[in-house]
Design a binder for these strands. Structure first.
Lengths: 333, 333
DNA sequence: TTGAAAGCGCTAACAG
DNA sequence: CTGTTAGCGCTTTCAA
């Protein structure tokens, strides 16, 4: 390689890594040789000396299958992938299920094989985040972690979004606004419930039923709700999947949406929200953007943009970023 | 490390890598030192000399968002992850969208940074598989690739499964059995259609409508079907998502399932099939098992089992494995 | 059975 | 600005 270009290995290295201070003549020669030889630097050798890896781990802690039914992670992953690709950083996927895996992941991360970790852990009592935190690897969490500490994370404004949803319902003149929550061992669900309470602090406790972010959970909750408060005239569902289940039950019960009962979801998961019957009014969050932001934050730099990305420019080392939400009006409310 | 155990680095290496021919006394010392120091071998240094990486790339070529609405990949990924974890092999995720990405991925794989690739590419005209094939990396495809060549792949018996479904419908006494296909630029969709035709070679062409594996596509197709053949008394939908869309339209049209129209799906995607109204009779395939098998096949070894895995033991270098399917009866047919 | 020594392919000081 | 030199941490001959 160096021979082919007629320069020293050091010079090749400088050109390949885009360092300044190489005469253009030589740089050209090197680049030509690179092309001709199809030269690709050996990452192992490089990271052996630089002590960087240009790789980050994405840890998804999910004992349940449920997650996979939800396009949520997939979208976030895609955002992460885009950002990492733009920076030529590799994405290592670590899927866990169960205790043993936690240790394994902890060991792996502590082993220093990656430059950082992006972790998703839904449940408040999950020990994994703690383990990872202890591993001493730079980490950014997806969604606000459950503890009080000072972890860096990216989340959407769950509470604010919930307020938007409920205010919209109230603005429609609805007076018996129910809320089907998510699983309350996840901060996103808790925050959305808090948002509901912000607007309706005096709501009848019977109007709040716990769901689990699935359509089946939404159905169950909606039945219970109808049972306890047949006069309910609006429902804020903790996510679109839940809303779709609720819609089904409302239809079965002979109620018209939005005339009899107005429904608002959360997420704006397109295939769900748009296909719902009627199409769902919901709170949009930029899931893919959150993914990009997580990666950018971990790697300390701005998001590599691809057009005007409204999201949020300032990813610089901030402790946490909370992305705004937006109410999307369709027909259900 | 070597010092701590009072032996040479060479000996440490031998113990760590489980090579035979080290006196047990020394081995014990080394293991103790490893534990005490929390020593983790440096993968970069190792792969620099061994020229292996203990890492495989999972390439998911998907220009569309659609994939992510389908838990299919997620499940397969999980299977892959399990198998790789059992072998202490890292999973690198490569998501692509668009031409540029294809080249990038090709270059990456050709660069020899991984020991192999597991690739998912849905569309027959996708250039990516060819590029990867040309990169000279050991590769196993998820699903039968569209070309005639000799690629290694793991798939389920789409055609046989379709036959099971259609025979079941025929066995129920249905005489006007329709088929809503998947997108016909994917082999799985084509194979399922072929299976339908195997059983019903003389079926009215009007009974076959193209869908796209989504609920929305299923709705559209079902409407068309009802329009063209209002007397249809059974539908074999190319997957569960499609079936769920069809069910909705059937309900709207006032038809009873299965009394008026029997419906069978494909995949046995639990959250979809079980939640459907009525619960879906469908063709089950072991998606997670396919993932495990892909990994096992790539790495040339049997599946690391975790209990009695009925799937298929013989992953040894075989050119391709086609997993059996099973009809699961619920209420829709 | 064990240790000494060489070197994987690269980058980072340091001279020149 | 460029080349020379010295390792990064590991495995692998080769001797002992």
């Amino acid at each position: 390689m160096a021979a082919r270009a007629g320069v020293s290995r050091a010079t090749v290295s400088r050109v390949v890594n885009g360092e300044a201070g190489v005469r253009e003549v030589l740089a050209v020669k090197v680049r030509r040789a690179v092309k001709e030889l199809g030269y690709v630097p050996n990452r192992a050798a490089r990271s052996l000396v630089t002590r960087r890896h240009d790789a980050v781990a994405v840890v998804i802690a999910e004992p349940e299958t449920r997650v996979f039914a939800d396009p949520f992670f997939a979208l976030q992953l895609r955002g992460i992938s885009k950002e990492l690709t733009a920076r030529d950083v590799q994405l290592l996927l670590l899927l866990t299920e169960g205790r043993d895996d936690h240790e394994r992941v902890g060991r792996y991360l502590a082993g220093g094989h990656v430059d950082g970790a992006l972790v998703f852990s839904l449940h408040l009592d999950d020990p994994l985040p703690g383990i990872i935190h202890g591993a001493g690897v730079p980490t950014v969490f997806g969604g606000r972690p459950g503890w009080a500490g000072s972890a860096r994370y990216v989340d959407c404004d769950n509470r604010g979004g919930a307020r938007q949803a409920v205010r919209h319902l109230v603005g429609l003149g609805r007076t018996r606004v129910a809320h089907i929550t998510g699983p309350l061992d996840q901060t996103s669900a808790v925050d959305r419930l808090d948002g509901y309470r912000d607007v309706l602090p005096a709501a009848d406790p019977d109007l709040v039923v716990e769901g689990d972010f699935t359509p089946a959970g939404g159905e169950r909750a909606m039945r219970l709700l109808l049972d306890r408060r047949p006069d309910v005239d609006a429902v804020f569902a903790a996510n679109d999947l839940t809303a779709s289940g609720a819609l089904r039950v409302l239809r079965e019960s002979g109620r018209r949406v939005p005339r009899d009962v107005a429904v608002v979801g959360f997420d704006d998961m397109l295939p769900v929200a748009e296909q719902a019957d009627p199409p769902l009014t919901t709170v949009r969050q930029d899931i893919e953007g959150m993914g990009r932001l997580m990666a950018a934050m971990l790697l300390r730099g701005d998001v590599h943009e691809e057009g005007a990305d409204g999201a949020d420019a300032d990813a610089e080392g901030g402790a946490c970023v909370v992305l705004p939400t937006e109410l999307v009006r369709r027909e259900s409310a």
